[in-house]
Structures are given as C-alpha cells and as structure tokens.
C-alpha cells in the first residue's frame, strides 16, 4: 500500500497535474505510430498479396 515515506516530496499536486496534462500527446503519438504501422501492414498485404492473387467469387 502507499507509504508516505515512499512518496517523492517533489511530486506536488500542481506538478502532477502538469504531467497528466501532457500525457495525451505522448499517448496519441504511441497509439498513432502503432495504428499507422498496422494500417501500412494491412495495405501492403492487401495491395501486394491479396489483389495480385485475383478474384475467386
């Protein structure tokens, strides 16, 4: 459990709030890169594997 002795005295409410406010940009950057890689992988498979194999319907 939280022990007051383990708490960094430099972390005050205002500094915590400031860091939390910055969090979305880092989270969006991480999520954006992950989703972009996923989309690129999907596009490569779709364009260079699926389409050249031709229709089967």
């Amino acid at each position: 459990m939280n022990n007051p002795a383990d708490t960094d005295p430099d972390i005050t409410d205002p500094t915590l709030a400031a860091h939390l406010d910055e969090a979305p940009s880092g989270a969006f950057a991480l999520a954006g890169i992950a989703v972009a890689l996923l989309l690129v992988a999907w596009a490569i498979i779709y364009l260079f594997v699926f389409l050249p194999r031709g229709p089967v319907g």
């Binding site: 709030a17 400031a18 939390l20 406010d21 979305p24 940009s25 969006f28 954006g32 989703v35 989309l39």
Partner: peptide
C-alpha cells in the same frame, strides 16, 4: 496548472476522426 478538459476532448475528437478515416 490544471488539466484542461477541453483540450483533452479536442484531442480525443481528432483521434476519433483519424480512426473513422482509417476504417
């Protein structure tokens, strides 16, 4: 410095647009 709820809402809206665009 307080967390700006409007800023977060804008960010999330932009993210939603990007995801709808990808889909």
């Amino acid at each position: 410095m307080a967390i700006d709820p409007l800023s977060n809402a804008r960010s999330e809206r932009r993210w939603a647009f990007a995801m709808v665009g990808a889909a």
